[in-house]
Amino acid sequence: MTDERAPVPALAFDPDLAWGVHPQVALRDESFGALAYHYGTRRLLFLKSRPLVELVSSLDQYESATAAIVAVVPPEQRPAYRRALARLAASEVIGVR
């Protein structure tokens, strides 16, 4: 087995870095958003809205998470989406590219 049960490093989410869906994570679309399963940590998470799924899926097209947020999310909602990405980074659903 690999070291998948190693504790999740409590990395601070740096929105100025380039992010993408973690290579060990699979997303599955559902009516409410998506399910995310991490094959390494065996964690199951829920992305609770379609816009969040779209943001997460488009991260790899931008040079930074901030650029993705600016491109995809209306201004008044950006802080909430930044927090959502920070949570997903802590769970390793997304990772630095």
């Binding site: 409410f32 399963y37 065996r42 964690r43 199951l44 998470l45 829920f46 609770k48 769970s91």
Partner: peptide
């Protein structure tokens, strides 16, 4: 699998 984001 540990489940997060409960109110769904």
């Amino acid at each position: 699998a540990p489940i997060e984001n409960l109110p769904l």
